[in-house]
């Protein structure tokens, strides 16, 4: 393939495999980190907002129930 005779030649990188591949591995890590981290924090934030919304709904429902009960005892 290309400038190399075989795939194993390509992997060997003319004896510089450790250096070349560790550099490219770090490169891939940087790419993954920069996408994965913001996506994860977005999910976390959305989850938090969802919980907040649920708590608010539950509170509103409880409030409504209480009002109904007091109204009921009054009449």
């Amino acid at each position: 393939m290309g400038s190399f005779d075989s795939f194993s030649d390509f992997l060997a990188m003319g004896g510089y495999a450790t250096y070349v591949w560790s550099a490219y591995a770090f490169f891939i890590l940087v790419l993954i980190f920069n996408v994965w981290q913001p996506i994860l924090s977005r999910k976390k934030y959305l989850k938090q907002q969802l919980r907040r919304e649920q708590v608010q709904q539950e509170r509103a429902q409880a409030q409504q129930k209480r009002e109904e009960m007091t109204n009921g005892s009054a009449t």
């Binding site: 400038s3 990188m13 510089y16 250096y19 070349v20």
Partner: peptide, 24 residues
């Protein structure tokens, strides 16, 4: 850069790190 460019006459295949080092 990794597979098709020819090796450097001094640094051999190792110079391929340049393709990410310089842009980064």
């Amino acid at each position: 850069g990794l597979a098709f460019t020819p090796p450097d006459y001094q640094m051999g295949e190792n110079y391929r790190i340049a393709y990410i080092h310089v842009p980064a």
